[in-house]
């Protein structure tokens, strides 16, 4: 038991060292992630009620249209957004029904090992 605890401790210390080594990079990425989270939140808020097209969302959120499309493509890939009907030359996007929140937030249940 103490052996594994010791390993855990060592592991933690090694992780700390690694984080220290990459400090600057981690800082930069964290800043990017913050922007991304804000953008995703803004886009999703726009979609919350009635959905919208890329130019509409870009106008409302102030995020450039190409970036909005990029986030939508990504969120669509992870099942959070779906495409709705066409509106002029553009498609509208809406939040997915039954957005697979659990996939993203749920923890895998590792306790059910039945062997």
């Amino acid at each position: 038991m103490s052996q594994t605890e010791k390993q855990k401790k060592e592991q933690k210390a090694a992780m700390k060292r690694l984080r220290q080594e990459r400090k600057q990079k981690i800082k930069d990425i964290a800043a990017t992630v913050k922007t991304q989270k804000e953008a995703v939140k803004a886009i999703k808020e726009q979609l919350q009620n009635h959905g919208g097209t890329v130019p509409q969302i870009a106008r409302e959120t102030g995020i450039s249209a190409d970036k909005v499309l990029w986030y939508i493509a990504a969120l669509k890939k992870y099942g959070e957004i779906s495409e709705a009907e066409k509106d002029g030359g553009y498609f509208r996007y809406i939040l997915s029904e039954g957005s697979p929140e659990e996939i993203f937030n749920g923890q895998p249940d590792g306790s059910q090992d039945t062997k």
Binding site: T53, V54, P55, D66, V68, L69, A73, K76, G89, F91
Partner: peptide
Amino acid sequence: GPYNRVLRPSDGMEPD
């Protein structure tokens, strides 16, 4: 693909 259809990347318009 990324959009599951052809859209132009600058703003998601379906190109004519």
